[in-house]
Design a protein around this nucleic acid. Structure first.
Lengths: 145, 145
DNA sequence: TGCAAACTATTTGAATGCAAATTAATAACT
DNA sequence: AGTTATTAATTTGCATTCAAATAGTTTGCA
């Protein structure tokens, strides 16, 4: 638990450093990054890529739009949808920016040998999968209270 | 990275479940928990225990105080300090509440053998430690951009 | 066709979290 | 003693995040 908190904190600190570097917060950079990868995404699709709620992404996108880093065009085929794309300025900014958050991980993983990284990856995937199991049996949660 | 996001998300979902159960958010429960462990803490000390900024803890404590779950007494020895303690009500509420977030981890770790848990713990500690290294050498961060 | 159901995006309200600035109290140093 | 520096807590302003409610659009079914 302590290690996880420290990792999350370190990721946040990295995000702050990125913000100082290129003027974007972590989620903002992340959103631009996903748009650059995909070319064009609906808000829903972007929120899915980022594993965030649409209502959250609306705000992030709004701030990026206000700065002219992306365009918001209604989809002619489905007028509920808002298609998001990078502007030239957004694309340009992205060229000078680091990977979102992943840079910090890469840096940290530099100091670990390949076997450790592979093992960690397996363990984390297993843990993540286990934690997503719906906890209908509450005994485990309260047994140690 | 994906695994970490999923773990953080799962922890947040657990926090929501806890909130539905006992009417407290994760940080609120966590604060009460730390107070119960320590008996009495200054706001500064509590923020240190939780690895959060004092300005953040001020808000959390205020909400708990508003509900009568803790007391805020000025320290006679140093009147800058505000000493925090659980009320009887807060103590009572804590008895029926799960461990903050750790319950979710315990549940997940149930499904892993001891060696895997030990190995994961080592890897996470190592990773957390590596990520806290001050990144004066920015090459790692931008090499892959 | 027409109505209900489902979907997309946004709005609203609340909590968390930080940094920076403020206020108040203590410590330190001249 | 008096001025300065440090420390504790709060306030303010902003970004992120979610859930729930809403408006507009599309789909599906009768």
């Amino acid at each position: 638990m302590q290690s996880l908190r420290r990792i999350v904190k370190a990721l946040h600190d990295y995000s702050m450093r990125v913000e100082k570097q290129c003027g974007l917060t972590g989620p903002q950079l992340w959103a631009l990054w996903e748009l650059n990868r995909a070319g064009t995404l609906s808000l829903k699709a972007l929120s899915k890529q980022m594993h965030l709620e649409p209502s959250t992404v609306t705000g992030v996108v709004e701030r990026l739009h206000k700065r002219g880093l992306l365009t918001r065009e209604p989809d002619p085929a489905d007028r509920r949808r808002v298609m998001l794309s990078l502007t030239a300025e957004g694309s340009q900014l992205l060229k000078g920016a680091p990977h979102p958050a992943q840079g910090q991980l890469l840096y940290a993983l530099h100091g670990m040998d390949l076997d450790s990284v592979a093992s960690l990856n397996q363990s984390l995937k297993r843990l993540a999968s286990d934690m997503e199991v719906d906890a209908t049996d509450a005994r485990f949660f309260f047994a140690e209270g």
